[in-house]
């Protein structure tokens, strides 16, 4: 087990370094630069060049690359060009929104997706199953931004029940009521992802429910609820866990469109803004954090398999 963890950790480091390197190269390849974005469309080439010189962006790429990695290995990800603050501090500020949004959306995903998948699998080809499949198909087909806008128009614009957009930090203000700003985006994001989980849960449960040990459990006279929840769901959980874990990673790191629609200061919108502004250190920093998030969640998910299914052993 220990050697497995060491090998995986080494692989994780390599993956993260690759992501950072590829991001660096790609950012150099796309046209545009932060100086011309900051100075605006009416700046002269001389003014743009002068600011690039001040920021050291006129140096050869390999010098910039060396400097970045020298700082990187010292744990310094640099400063955002636009915010003039350390990259990690800005990501930390934005992470609160994304993590809360991710958790709330995950509650929608799990709360809707797993029950829907289990119910559909228990009554295969019934009207319940068909209705849930249809709903899941709709969920997978509806773009989250459209659903978000519709929810915003209804619950904020017409009924005035929830705020339309924006978010104020719960941690900074100590006001937990600010979480109501995340209800609509969490539902918009969660509903779409719940469809995927529901379909995975259904197919996984269908496989398990056909297994001999389920027939045995039923023959022993166990209640349906015990058979389904204790015997079947746990064994069907591996593919569901995989889907949920990656859904969570994408909810936290990549709710780009939803965050944009609801004007949420999260990591997703930070990615878009940083790319549009060509804020190189910021983009590098976010990609690093997102890469770490993915490899860690992937790793933890792998370890969870052993807990869910004791037959799995790591060497």
């Amino acid at each position: 087990m220990l050697s497995y963890i060491v090998r995986r950790a080494a692989g994780m480091v390599v993956s993260v370094l690759l992501v950072v390197t590829i991001t660096f190269i790609l950012m150099q390849l796309i046209p545009g630069d932060p100086a011309s974005v900051l100075l605006g469309p009416n700046a002269t080439p001389e003014q743009i060049e002068a600011l690039k010189r001040t920021w050291g962006l006129d140096r050869p790429i390999w010098v910039q690359f060396y400097k970045y990695f020298a700082n990187f290995f010292r744990g310094n990800l640099g400063e955002s060009i636009f915010f003039r603050q350390p990259v990690l501090r800005i990501i930390g500020q934005r992470a609160e929104t994304s993590v809360f949004l991710g958790i709330m959306a995950l509650m929608v995903v799990v709360g809707l997706g797993i029950p829907a998948g289990v119910i559909a699998a228990v009554r295969p080809n019934s009207w319940v199953d068909n209705s849930l499949l249809l709903l899941a198909l709709a969920g997978a087909s509806i773009p989250s931004f459209w659903l978000g806008l519709m929810l915003m128009v209804l619950f904020a614009g017409k009924l005035h029940l929830l705020p339309s957009s924006g978010y104020t930090s719960v941690i900074a203000t100590g006001n937990i009521a600010n979480l109501k700003n995340l209800i609509l985006p969490a539902f918009a994001l969660g509903f779409v992802n719940a469809a995927l989980v529901a379909r995975t849960a259904r197919s996984s449960m269908l496989d398990v429910l056909r297994a001999d040990y389920i027939t045995t459990a039923r023959a022993k006279g166990l209640r349906d609820s015990v058979v389904i929840l204790k015997h079947a769901l746990r064994n069907a959980a591996i593919p569901i866990t995989t889907v949920i874990s990656f859904t969570f990673a994408s909810l936290v790191s990549g709710a780009v469109v939803t965050e944009n629609v609801f004007a949420l200061p999260g990591v997703g919108s930070l990615i878009v803004q940083s790319v549009l502004k060509r804020d190189y250190p910021m983009i590098q920093g976010i990609m690093l954090v997102v890469a770490v998030l993915y490899v860690v969640i992937n790793f933890v998910t792998d370890l969870t398999y052993a807990f869910l299914d004791p037959r799995i052993r790591y060497r």
Partner: peptide, 18 residues
């Protein structure tokens, strides 16, 4: 001054009193 890039969010935000 809030940053609200989505046009509809600015519109609904005014309608909702946000």
């Amino acid at each position: 001054f809030y940053f609200v890039p989505e046009d509809n969010a600015r519109l609904v935000g005014i309608q909702a009193g946000t």
